[in-house]
Design a protein around this nucleic acid. Structure first.
Lengths: 126, 126
DNA sequence: CTGGATCCTAAATGATACTG
DNA sequence: CAGTATCATTTAGGATCCAG
């Protein structure tokens, strides 16, 4: 994610483009709602309403908005069952599951460092 | 990061508290600026101005704001050299470096899936 | 049930000016 | 140079209503 010096490279333009694309993808995905949704999906297939219940505090709007974004980036697959009332299910794609593994690690990290962070906060002046 | 059922547990209150704290910490760090700063720091000690140059597009305000937040959570250490003009350096703490490892993985993931994501975007209707 | 559209508020962010 | 404060603006987010 570091911007490098490409001057002189024959593929300078391509490399710059890849970097800016990587940064754009990172910005899409690196927000709490997207990561919490990915974490909630796990390796399951989950209905919209179930997802809304499981991602604590998320609104209808944020859920649909982030699901669309994840779908657009090929990380989530959306399946509509033509029943009435409609049943829509979401599941992670292969790349989506790869990303989920990194989110899992981030969640693990969080839980392992709760005590340290609490202590730091007390010492900081809070 | 999943909310569990603690009813009946003797430590119910403690567990709920740990969960809500984990969620709060996660919400703090799971934003693009914080993660990009952590990634830019790497295992180095970096001056404020250098950090601002390296995290492309970040404003003075966002940088200070996120650095304070990371410092408050004990992930970044701030060192002020009493020179003139002042020199302020930032470096990741032990826990901060642990988090950086997961961010590294997320960046790797991003670069590995650029092609897949580009293809998904084209197919989605963009 | 799911999803889109709308309106409205709160929060994030950028620009700027000022200080030690 | 680093940091704070302020102000203006943009964006995120919530509430609600309607449609398939």
């Amino acid at each position: 994610m570091v911007t490098k010096e490409y001057a002189g490279s024959p593929d300078e333009a391509d490399l710059r483009r890849a970097d800016s694309l990587a940064r754009e993808i990172f910005s899409d995905v690196a927000n709490k709602w997207a990561l919490l949704i990915i974490e909630a999906l796990g390796d399951r297939t989950v209905r919209f309403s179930a997802l809304r219940d499981e991602v604590e505090g998320i609104s209808h709007k944020m859920l649909t908005q982030n699901l669309r974004m994840l779908e657009r980036n090929g990380l989530v697959e959306r399946t509509v069952h033509a029943t009435v009332p409609p049943r829509v299910e979401y599941t992670l794609t292969g790349p989506g599951r790869g990303l989920r593994e990194t989110v899992d690690l981030m969640c693990d990290w969080t839980h392992r460092h709760i005590a340290h962070i609490e202590a730091a906060r007390r010492g900081f002046g809070g």
